[in-house]
Amino acid sequence: MSAPLLQVRGLTRRFGGLVAVSDLDVDLGRGEILALIGPNGAGKTTTFNLIAGVDRPTSGTIVFDGRDISRQPAHARAALGLTRTFQHNMPFAGMSLTDNILVGRHARFTGGLVDVILGARRLREQESAARRKADELIEFTGLGARVDADVSTLSFGEGRLLEVARALVSDPRAILLDEPAAGLTGAEVARLARIIADIAARGIAVLLIDHDMRFVLPLAHRAIVLKFGEKIADGPPRDIVNDPAVIAAYLGNSAGAAHA
């Protein structure tokens, strides 16, 4: 059996005296949808930030595709094929929808500024490949009707789809989704769930962070439950929902589990 694509070992993040994430192990395989759930304050966002590279662990390692990326900056992780979306949509407001998506392809362009100025043939090929891929993702996410729209006029749900398209255009090997269903309408959630399943079907590993178990569990192949920074369960969703520790963690926090 080959090693999982993403291997997190002993991940710990302290904020002063508070241990936000404690000695956490996570394995994520190719094409797998892994849900990271837990009540508010459990350490999900902190874990996400550590894996995405916008925060540094106090201790522990993050190995991606056999490479220790624990100390790599966020842009280098994206370039290695580990991309993300933002919980609060972060479009590039002054750019067209297509250009917004194309920015996600940044790391796939080779050569420097001199090649750009000299108009290297390879760059023209990379540019047309990027545009083909962007068009395909516009189709895939159903944003076609909005290509000419100013991105600041997109609805919240459309903005979320733009986030997803932007994170996929580089053909990443893993994608991190930060509460992707939050703020979406019922129909949008259903559409997003189909899209996430399709992403995994393409062989891309998906790490889904959410506190809404009802969105995440039907979709995930596996789930990890966090409570006060510690892993209290790791297994197939079917087992997770019946796990007494998980039920206890969410008990008295059912509001937190239910609202999106």
């Binding site: 842009h75 991309t83 993300r84 933002f86 479009p91 407001a93 580089s170």
Partner: peptide, 17 residues
């Protein structure tokens, strides 16, 4: 595109590589 992205939203630009 990278320049405009950095102008509009540096955090998101960095996340895009």
């Amino acid at each position: 595109r990278a320049c405009r992205a950095v102008r509009d939203n540096p955090r998101a630009a960095e996340a895009m590589g």
